[in-house]
Simulated scan of single mutants.
Amino acid sequence: MSCEPRFYRTFSSSERWETYRVRVESTDLYIRTQGNHAFWVQKKVCELRKVLTQHIQRQPRFLESLTPVPGVRGMHPMLTAMHRASELAGTGPMAAVAGAIAQWVGSGLQRWSREVIVENGGDIYLCLQEAGTMSLYAGGSRLSGAIGLTVEPAQTPVAVCTSSGTVGHSYSLGRADAATIVSQDACLADAVATGAANLVGSEQDLEKALAYALNIPGVLGAVLILGDNLAVQGDVQLVRT
């Protein structure tokens, strides 16, 4: 899997935080923290990737399956979280991998930084002291970049994960331009975003996909975009950008 340029990223730093990038093979992280902790992040990502690789050698279906696979005793906590998320979402466990790495890196960074943003291929883990707004990217939709999602400090740490059938290299069974899920569990947000995007083949599927997402325990809100159609439900604060 190759790394793709993340054209929505900006690397300007400020008094609030430093902004930097960490790449390890196909893992490509965009990070904002107080201070630059790239060396620690690189070591952590290498550790997590090794855990994942070793488990896949033990259980190849963990990598290949598009549906939940049986749990294995003695799994690393990150893998256990991915497994649980896949069971709740009805997806394969690798549907949660980007969110998992974002959360495990982001939670570790909270030891040194009061504010943390870790983005991994459109899946974001946040811990904020002041409100922040992120634009929603939805490919060729006219809504892409025109609306944003505001996150309040009291909601964090939280994950905002997006899947798409029209943008990026991730495999999707649907046609959604964006399926964005909010949850305090990044593994769950990532897996449910995949599941919701898979369900959207036409405008008529948006309500069904929303119902699927919001009926899963731990999902706080969902935003679905298909062309010029927008469907929103749950604890989500949208703004014009």
Rank of each mutant, 00 (worst) to 15 (best):
H76Y: 13
M78G: 13
L79C: 06
L79F: 05
T80I: 10
A81G: 10
M82P: 02
M82T: 04
H83K: 09
H83I: 03
H83R: 09
R84A: 06
A85Q: 02
A85N: 00
A85F: 05
S86H: 01
S86T: 01
E87L: 15
L88R: 11
G90C: 03
G92L: 01
G92F: 00
G92A: 01
P93C: 04
M94R: 02
V97G: 13
V97K: 01
V97T: 11
G99K: 07
G99R: 10
Q103K: 03
Q103D: 06
W104Q: 11
V105N: 15
V105R: 03
G106A: 13
G106D: 15
S107I: 08
S107Q: 12
G108M: 01
G108F: 01
G108R: 01
G108S: 13
L109C: 09
Q110T: 15
R111D: 10
R111G: 08
W112C: 14
W112D: 14
S113R: 10
S113W: 10
R114W: 10
R114E: 15
R114G: 10
R114V: 12
E115R: 01
E115Y: 10
V116I: 09
V118E: 04
V118C: 14
E119D: 10
E119H: 07
N120T: 12
G121V: 14
D123K: 08
Y125F: 15
L126H: 03
L126Y: 03
C127Y: 08
Q129N: 13
Q129V: 12
Q129F: 02
E130P: 00
G132R: 00
G132Y: 03
G132T: 00
G132N: 00
T133Y: 12
S135D: 13
S135C: 11
L136E: 00
Y137Q: 14
G139S: 05
G140E: 15
S141I: 07
S141C: 10
S141A: 06
S141E: 13
R142D: 14
L143A: 11
L143Q: 03
S144H: 11
A146V: 06
A146F: 08
A146C: 12
A146T: 11
A146Q: 14
I147A: 06
G148Q: 09
G148H: 05
G148L: 04
L149P: 04
L149T: 02
V151N: 01
V151T: 04
V151W: 00
E152N: 11
E152A: 15
Q155H: 14
Q155P: 09
V158Q: 04
V158R: 02
A159R: 07
A159Y: 07
V160H: 00
T162A: 15
S163C: 03
S164D: 06
S164R: 02
S164Q: 01
S164H: 05
S164T: 02
G165P: 14
G165A: 03
V167H: 06
G168V: 08
G168F: 11
H169V: 15
S170A: 09
Y171D: 11
S172T: 00
L173E: 11
L173W: 14
L173T: 03
L173S: 12
G174L: 07
D177M: 07
D177F: 07
T180H: 13
T180W: 03
S183Y: 05
S183N: 08
S183A: 13
D185N: 14
D185A: 14
D185Y: 05
C187W: 07
C187T: 05
L188D: 06
A189F: 02
A189Q: 05
A191W: 01
A191D: 01
A193F: 14
T194D: 00
T194R: 01
T194V: 09
G195E: 07
